[in-house]
């Protein structure tokens, strides 16, 4: 099993039950809001709202906060950049360098925004299965199909990619073991050597992937696959009153905090 920060966690919560389209739309709004609000109170309100969503989704607090680690260095770099480059009232002067109160605030704000975006994204992936995500994305992108964007095909590609992730992980492990048995040193030494040592694993992995792709294409054709509007779905997305309510609440929040 693959365990990553921001992986899907099956549970039964009001947030899990929301339609993926509503959830993705709401998440998008919640990710944009930290960048468009001005007042200090609004910043606090946003934190409160995200915390409330996390509570409703029964998201475990620790793993959720741990997803912030993935952007730790990015946050540090952003903070330092704003801290040292924003002009304003001097806070500290060390020789040539002067840092300002405004710099401190601007840097802190950037970190705050980044963290909120990551937490909202993590909440979305925690509560939405990859399958639902694919269906939702496909549905949301549907208007683009009129412009000739192959939305259905992309959806199929995503579905198949998700299906084969664990298969390829298994395969990679088997290959690594096989190459180790032949004396290859995989995943040890300095970074450059470690990267190079992956070659004997990656090359056969790609060859096998192409063979799989060919087999899969034949199997799909044999089962009458075609990308067309006539395809139906076992699961249809259903947009309920709750989904409407959720979207309205988030939009209401957006209007309230950006006013």
């Amino acid at each position: 099993m693959l365990l990553l920060p921001g992986m899907y966690m099956a549970a039964d919560s009001p947030i899990h039950r929301l339609d993926p389209r509503a959830k993705m739309g709401a998440a998008l709004v919640l990710m944009v809001l930290p960048f468009s609000v001005q007042r200090p109170l609004a910043y606090l309100v946003l934190i409160g709202v995200v915390a409330a969503v996390a509570w409703l989704a029964r998201a475990p607090l620790k793993p959720l906060l741990r997803t912030l680690r993935t952007v730790f260095w990015l946050a540090v770099i952003m903070f330092v950049f704003y801290f040292f480059t924003t002009p304003g009232r001097p806070l500290l002067t060390l020789g040539e360098i002067t840092v300002t109160w405004e710099g401190l605030i601007a840097g802190g704000l950037q970190v705050y925004r980044l963290c909120l975006v990551v937490i909202v994204a993590a909440l979305l992936t925690y509560t939405t299965s990859p399958l639902q995500m694919t269906h939702g994305l496909e549905a949301l992108l549907c208007p683009l199909a009129r412009l000739g964007v192959p939305v259905r095909e992309l959806g199929m590609v995503m579905t198949i990619a998700l299906r084969f992730v664990p298969t390829f992980f298994d395969e990679m492990e088997t290959l690594a073991r096989a190459q180790r048995a032949r004396g290859a040193e995989i995943g040890s030494g300095p970074p450059w050597r470690r990267l190079r040592s992956l070659v004997p694993v990656m090359v056969p992995l790609f060859v096998l992937a192409f063979r799989r792709a060919e087999d899969l294409a034949v199997a799909m054709e044999a089962r009458g696959f075609r990308c067309s509007p006539h395809r139906t779905r076992l699961y249809c997305l259903s947009f309920t009153r709750w989904d409407g309510l959720a979207v309205l609440l988030v939009l209401g929040l957006a209007i309230l905090v950006t006013r």
Binding site: P130, L162, L216, G224
Partner: peptide, 15 residues
Amino acid sequence: VASTVEEEVAFGPEN
């Protein structure tokens, strides 16, 4: 093709 058993079985009828 699919990531759950029932979606897999549904693939043909969906087509």
